[in-house]
Amino acid sequence: MKTPQKTIGMRLLGGHLWVVYTFLYIPILVLMGLSFNDIGMPTAWGGFSTKWYGVLLENDAVLNAAKNTLIVATVSTFLATLVGTMLAIGIESRGRKTSSALEALLFAPMIIPDIVLAIALLSFFTLLDFTLGLHSIILSHVVFNIAFVSAVVRTRLKNFDFSILEASIDLGASEFTTFRRVTLPVIFPGVLAGGLLAFTLSVDEFIIAFFTAGAGSSSTTLPMQIYSMIRFGVTPEINAMATIVMLVSFTLVFISQRINKGSSVS
């Protein structure tokens, strides 16, 4: 009597999983669908149209914000990937257990409430009389991105035998050659996946950017632009922008997954 009971249970579980998927995807699909709705409002379907994408691409504020976001995300990703990867190698190559204080320090940027880090950084920059702008957003984004990059690269290094690096040097290779020919190929998928993750996080980050951008619209990022558009009211342009932003994020995540999975065999 056990088997049929189990299958009913499994079916219920499977059904529940699909309910969860529906819950997760309906809001996203609704936005994407509405972005092609001619009248733009969710009240009725006015026919298929791409006119809201046109309206969006003529909005200078949006384009400027997109440009700022690209600058912030690119520079902060580059810095965080470099520094975070070095950090991961440094920690893992010591060959002993990482102290819980260090683990906590590396974990903190991932879990600290955004608003707290945001006001802390604002206080810090203000105290130093630091002029706020895109550069202060970059410095701030690197903080949480270091944590994510080093976490991804560290998982990659968990089973890495560091004695082969010594072997390489004993055999006459320089430090640099050893890094380029031995270490880098092993960690590269992790570095790339970590970098893509950092880029996605930086593109999406709102509160810290909002607090460290300073006054004026010159350093408005895309999330800040989206926020003010939402606060202003439900406009059809947001749906079009949401669709583009989501598709870009999904593509990046998809690529990063493929990279990290594809070579985990080696």
């Binding site: 809001p27 936005l31 999406d204």
Partner: peptide, 17 residues
């Protein structure tokens, strides 16, 4: 996958709904 899309946008979707 949805977790990696913009937080503001995911929240905005609920205003629409």
């Amino acid at each position: 996958l949805p977790f990696w899309s913009n937080y503001l946008i995911r929240t905005y979707a609920w205003i629409v709904l």
